[in-house]
């Protein structure tokens, strides 16, 4: 599918293949990619996380305000932002498991809470600035490879290894496939669910930092729409929304696919809003495609 899109992209506009354009696409894919890694974990476990965008913006705003352009603050404040992300994820997880509440609503609530927190903190007008180290993370590159995409792919690779090769990863699949059976197999289901939301929160906070580096300043709405784009990327990548099926490889493909689509739409001179239609069609096509694959797989 990705290869086909590369070919189509070239036909639509040869500009697509320019190294600088590819660089741009990869750079733009990175923040989405990082948060999609977290979203994949949550969806594999049978949940969904709609608080991602809010956590990203909160992390972005805090990074600008607290780092205030000083490189010496990058590491402590990065840790602080990740901790905030973990806290948000923990909140998602604890309410989802303890109260057995639908994650859809719980994570939406968390999104609102963190939106409120950053508005109270910034009084509506974000301040501070992003130091050069973090800027390098968001827009720098090693040769023709953006630094951010290296980090995204590294995180995806590590998480894929954990999913496939570690006991923890397998437990995520088990919980996503059948919570009751996982419980009956002695898996601590609430802890697994809690941990995937916490991880998703950390990844979202990190995605917010990548975006802050890309942008160069704190924005109260940085990452707007990323929660749905991340879900779209995960689904297009073949992870089942029902949980228990899929992986990081598909998500990487999904993220690139969605970013390339936006790029092609612009290169083709279509209104940017057109990409929403295309995105929707791609998600629908993916869902139909995978349902066929599944049916034919079952018949074997």
């Amino acid at each position: 599918m990705l290869v086909a899109l590369f070919v189509v992209a070239g036909i639509v506009s040869p500009i697509f293949y320019r190294p600088q354009n590819i660089f741009n696409v990869l750079q733009q894919a990175s923040a989405l990619g990082v948060v999609s890694v977290g979203q994949t974990l949550v969806i594999l476990s049978g949940g969904i996380d709609l608080s991602i965008a809010s956590i990203m913006a909160t992390s972005c705003v805090f990074a600008a305000a607290l780092m205030a352009g000083k490189n010496s603050m990058v590491i402590p404040i990065t840790l602080f932002c990740l901790a905030i992300g973990a806290l948000a994820g923990f909140l998602n997880g604890i309410i989802t498991t303890r109260r057995n509440a639908p994650p859809f609503i719980v994570t939406l609530g968390t999104a609102l809470i963190f939106q409120g927190i950053r508005f109270v903190y910034t009084k509506g007008a974000p301040f501070g600035s992003i130091p050069s180290w973090l800027r390098f993370l968001g827009r720098g590159g090693i040769g023709f490879v953006p630094a951010s995409v290296i980090i995204f792919l590294f995180l995806a690779l590590v998480m894929e290894a954990i999913l496939q090769r570690s006991a923890y990863g397998r437990k995520i699949y088990a919980v996503g496939d059948n919570k009751v059976a996982a419980l009956y197999s002695g898996i601590n289901v609430p802890n697994i669910i809690l941990s995937v939301y916490a991880l998703s929160g950390i990844f979202a906070a990190f995605g917010g930092l990548v975006l802050a580096g890309y942008l160069g300043f704190g924005d109260n709405w940085a990452g707007k729409g990323y929660e749905l784009d991340a879900i779209a990327a995960v689904v297009v990548g073949g992870t089942s929304l029902a949980g228990g099926e899929g992986g990081m490889g598909g998500t990487v493909v999904g993220v690139l696919l969605i970013t390339i689509l936006s790029n092609i739409v612009l290169l083709a001179g279509l209104p940017y809003q057109f990409q929403q239609i295309v995105k929707g069609l791609v998600v629908a096509a993916a869902v139909i495609f995978y349902s066929f694959v599944k049916v034919s797989g079952e018949r074997r």
């Binding site: 500009i15 354009n21 924005d219 001179g269």
Partner: peptide
């Protein structure tokens, strides 16, 4: 009215 989109769209238009 999004700085992120402004940058992404402009980056592509510069290529185009």
């Amino acid at each position: 009215w999004s700085p992120v989109l402004g940058k992404q769209v402009m980056a592509t238009l510069i290529q185009k």
